[in-house]
Design a protein around this nucleic acid. Sequence first.
DNA 1: TCAAGATTGATGCAGGTGCATCGAGTGGGG
DNA 2: CCCCACTCGATGCACCTGCATCAATCTTGA
Lengths: 165, 165
Amino acid sequence: MKRKPSTEATSAWIRLMRVQSRVLDCVEQDLKKAGFPPLAWYDALLELSRAPSGELRPVELERQMLIPQYSTSRLIDRLVDEGLASRRECKIDKRGQFVEITEAGRELQKRMWGAYSAAIEKYVGSKLSDADAVKLSGLLDRLGCSCGEMKLPPVANVNESTPPR
Amino acid sequence: MKRKPSTEATSAWIRLMRVQSRVLDCVEQDLKKAGFPPLAWYDALLELSRAPSGELRPVELERQMLIPQYSTSRLIDRLVDEGLASRRECKIDKRGQFVEITEAGRELQKRMWGAYSAAIEKYVGSKLSDADAVKLSGLLDRLGCSCGEMKLPPVANVNESTPPR
DNA sequence: TCAAGATTGATGCAGGTGCATCGAGTGGGG
DNA sequence: CCCCACTCGATGCACCTGCATCAATCTTGA
């Protein structure tokens, strides 16, 4: 009789899986209904817009977003196709390149934040007091910071002008 | 200055997304490395094995698993292809059918639970006290039970003979 | 200096997912 | 009884993902 994971742990696991997939679904649906592209585009545009001169190496973007290399490569393709970013050659390392956000990209990112933040409020903010949100973050951090080893910023300086990291 | 979602809520949202994707990834990887199929197969086999006579209507399975209809249909295809389940006609409603788990299916489900439970312990159980796991479950439930309207069972009666719902 | 190995980014292929739609079958109201 | 609306499950299509691998370039160390 090993009983490896406690019933409590198992229950938390199940809820983690189900709740995030439901909530993510809801948010993505809201964005889509508002005529916006998927969240991944927002994340990429945000990272680019944050970067010193609006440009990043694909490798950097990849590390920020925690997605595989080929996935980054194709996401950039799509952004470029839509005129939201452009590829620029990298003089110092001819293997590499820079990806630079365009004005259209910056603008889309800002417009998306409107719908995105509304969705976060609707599906998360309105369900939890700030104190509970902090508790939840703390518990989640305990899970996150070790199966991989990425660090999220301590507790985030987020407001309407500098959206989420 | 609207500041719709508090920074606390936004931070919780980000962590929810990132942590679950990391943890899920880890668990799926462990299963794959142990030579098992994806978690979705396990979930389906579990639901089938729980059902009164080891069979369910696809529609039921769909509702249990919270996945779209076409997805269920194709998942069943794969299970049947691998001999883990079989389709049986439904006499009372000729549109429908029953899906019945096979012996091979039941056996695979049990073997997978070994690897699966070990992964849950590794990535969740070992990171959280039971009390914290309960807190986490409670907070997650507050998010889950309203963007859709499914109810997870109150807190789960899970042990080594009756794996997670 | 040069070969071996590591890093960057792209891509062919197989498979999975979402969307729309279809055909078969049911069932309820006129 | 029949027609219309609905439910059940399957499927064609486009797209997206993971995996393996590639070519180009950089770096290292003998």
